[in-house]
């Protein structure tokens, strides 16, 4: 691969009490959509602040387009679109005044694309930003990030506050910009938004990178669990007593008199459905693995590799 667009090496910033980031390294290649997943306080925003040149690393380096994030921030920003995690816009401005101001600051002369985006997000930019709802503010932030058709996009929790329709629009927008050749780095604590956009994903936990995986790998390794309710406990017992290939019964759920069982199937649901067809089943619920559970999986694996 050529030169990475985003290159973070051994990045360390210790805020004390375990907060901050520790020895974080990753590279994002040109044209890639890279997800940065972690729970709140895991170090996503701190990493983002380094990439934006707001703060200086204690150790290690962070560079974008081959330029140092802190010392050459102004140069980088000419090619970068940014969406902050918390929308705090100079509060006495209207949406449109803010966007035009930012376009001027960024040196964007042609405002056609900005207006297109406003229309697509169905954003009414006339009210004061202070009076806008969280979702509307988020739209203003998104228009601001995308309007310059930047080479690099840094998006901190981009879909927070957006309704499902706007979330899909956002995903479409990310994919369009990837088509245009943009490199996207987005952080999130919601797996779904990452799943639908990203090529690769990094998991961060307590300030340390737990794993970097391609989206395909993540999908494949994500186990699916299902809550099966049988017609009666006898049926359950029959099912539980027999060994099934690729199907694991979660031990804690199996007890006398119960009709409900938690099972997990690796890979597809196909084998489970076919197997269950032999029994009398009242209901079958799919239960998505939580981000935390997925982390634990990765963290455990990575931990044992070290």
């Amino acid at each position: 691969m050529g030169n990475p667009v985003i290159d973070v090496r051994n990045l360390t910033k210790d805020y004390g009490k375990g907060r901050g980031v520790f020895d974080v390294s990753f590279r994002v290649e040109s044209g890639e959509v890279f997800g940065f997943l972690g729970s709140n306080g895991a170090g996503k925003t701190v990493t983002m602040r380094h990439l934006m040149g707001f703060i200086r690393p204690q150790k290690g380096t962070a560079s974008v387009l081959g330029l140092d994030c802190f010392n050459q921030r102004a140069q980088i920003q000419g090619h970068l679109g940014y969406l902050p995690g918390e929308i705090a816009i100079a509060d006495d401005m209207t949406g449109i005044a803010f966007l035009t101001f930012m376009a001027k600051m960024k040196g964007i002369r042609n405002l056609d694309y900005m207006h297109q985006l406003i229309e697509r997000f169905q954003l009414d930019p006339k009210p004061k930003i202070r009076k806008m709802s969280k979702g509307t503010k988020q739209k203003v932030g998104l228009v601001c990030a995308f309007m310059g058709k930047p080479q690099v996009l840094l998006l901190d929790e981009p879909t927070s506050g957006l309704d499902p329709l706007m979330q899909s629009l956002f995903i479409q927008l990310v994919l369009e910009h990837r088509q245009m050749g943009a490199t996207v780095f987005l952080s999130s604590h919601i797996f779904e938004e990452v799943e639908r956009t990203c090529d690769r994903v990094a998991f961060i936990r307590e300030g340390r990178l737990a794993a970097i995986r391609s989206m395909d790998e993540v999908r494949a390794s994500r186990t699916h669990s299902y809550q099966v309710t049988f017609a009666d406990s006898q049926q359950l017992q029959l099912f539980a007593d027999k060994a099934h290939q690729g199907i694991a019964i979660e031990p804690a759920t199996e007890h006398q008199g119960s009709r409900t069982l938690l099972v997990s199937a690796d890979g597809s649901v196909d084998s489970l459905v076919k197997e269950l067809a032999n029994y009398s089943v009242e209901s079958l619920l799919s239960r998505a693995q939580s981000l935390e559970e997925m982390f634990m999986g990765f963290y455990g694996k990575e931990g044992s590799e070290r």
Binding site: M52, G53, F54, R73, A74, Q75, I76, Q77, G78, L80, Y82, P84, E86, A88, I89, A90, D91, M102, M105, K106, G107, C144
Partner: peptide, 18 residues
């Protein structure tokens, strides 16, 4: 206030040196 509330982020997100 802009540093405290975070709106300074927008100015720093423009190609203007500190």
């Amino acid at each position: 206030r802009p540093i405290d509330r975070g709106s300074m982020a927008y100015l720093l997100a423009s190609p203007t040196s500190r």
